[in-house]
């Protein structure tokens, strides 16, 4: 059981890291974990509904300063800021999940097939991927938003608009990474050895290549997520987002608070803004530190500044000595 925990992705990296890299990873994991927790528990945490304008004591009133009944004040539309921020995390999480699920499957499959089979299929897919690269995300998102919702704004219309535009842009990213890894792995001796055994192409692709090619996925995954959040916020800010009655959305709240900024009403813009920044920062920190830790050249280790204790293992390569090759392997195993 203990061993199982140590092998889990983030847990393993946490044990491996030291110093600044460990700090970055812990900060990132904490922020991201907090965000997910808030999103899931939004109905319990939020004091009011996201579209609630009044309670038993009457309407909230517009632009009420923080304090009293409204911990973070109310917006120009009369919504409770704290509730909007908390409910907004749920919308953001939905966009992340939909965007990542859509792009990861299509991108990985296309990259694998394109890289392994090659030929004209590969060339065509690479050209298309390059063309999509050149397409601006936000413009695509606006087009998708109009097409999907048909002018009406709804929760899932807004979520899918952001998710689909992110998907279209991120498929080429997954595609490129998986294709490059596949091309590399195709040359490895274990793929050739599967070929001389007589394995079918499908078996080689999915059993031998796919799992070895997914090493860098977590990194794009984090980029993909933070971009999804930013695009959703951008859509909302431009007015193509979700109506406040359908769901809470940070970009929309920022848009509504533009005029407040110059009149000294700070609470309507700062809190949704901080929420966006924190989520993106948290996810990016996780991605960055995973990236550094995955690369042995970037990974920092504790320096051996104490005199080696007698228990230190002296053998460097397990195969180095004919005498105790087996012993050395056992020693390595024991430490792992």
């Amino acid at each position: 059981m203990n061993n199982f925990w140590r092998r889990l992705p983030i847990v393993r990296q946490l044990r491996q890291s030291v110093g600044l890299q460990r700090g970055m990873l812990i900060a990132g994991v904490t922020i991201t974990g907090f965000f997910i927790l808030v999103a899931v528990l939004a109905p319990l945490l939020a004091p009011y509904g996201f579209s609630q304008l009044k309670d038993a004591d009457g309407t909230f009133g517009a632009q009420v300063p923080p304090g009293g009944k409204h911990l973070l004040g109310t917006t120009v539309g009369g919504y409770d800021v704290l509730s909007r921020v908390i409910w907004g995390s749920q919308t953001a999480l939905e966009v992340i999940v939909v965007a990542v699920l859509l792009s990861i499957f299509v991108g990985v499959i296309l990259g694998l097939v394109s890289g392994y089979i090659g030929g004209w299929l590969d060339r065509t897919l690479v050209v298309i991927a390059d063309a999509v690269y050149a397409f601006p995300t936000l413009l695509l998102a606006i087009v998708a938003a109009i097409a999907i919702s048909g002018g009406q704004s709804s929760l899932w219309g807004g979520v899918f608009a952001a998710a689909i535009s992110i998907t279209v842009v991120y498929i080429p990213q997954y595609f490129r990474v998986i294709r490059a890894e596949t091309l590399r792995i195709k040359q490895e001796a274990y793929v050739e050895s599967a070929k001389v055994i007589g394995s079918s192409t499908g078996r080689i692709m999915f059993r031998h290549v796919l799992r070895n090619a997914t090493r860098t996925i977590p990194l794009i995954f984090t980029l993909n997520s933070s971009d999804a959040v930013l695009t959703l916020a951008g859509l909302g800010f431009l007015g193509f987002g979700i109506e406040p009655t359908a769901a809470a959305e940070w970009g929309y709240d920022l848009n509504r608070s533009i005029s407040d900024v110059t009149s000294g009403i700070w609470w309507t813009s700062v809190f949704p803004g901080v929420a966006i920044v924190l989520v993106v920062l948290g996810i990016t920190l996780v991605g960055e530190s995973l990236n550094d830790l995955a690369d042995p050249r970037l990974r920092t280790r504790r320096r051996a500044d104490v005199l080696p204790s007698p228990t230190a293992v002296t053998s460097v390569a397990p195969g180095g000595s004919p005498l105790d090759a087996d012993l050395a392997v056992d020693a390595l195993e024991g430490r792992a």
Partner: peptide, 9 residues
């Protein structure tokens, strides 16, 4: 050397 698996002489 300091490695992932501890110090190696």
């Amino acid at each position: 050397f300091a490695t992932d698996g501890g110090n190696v002489v």
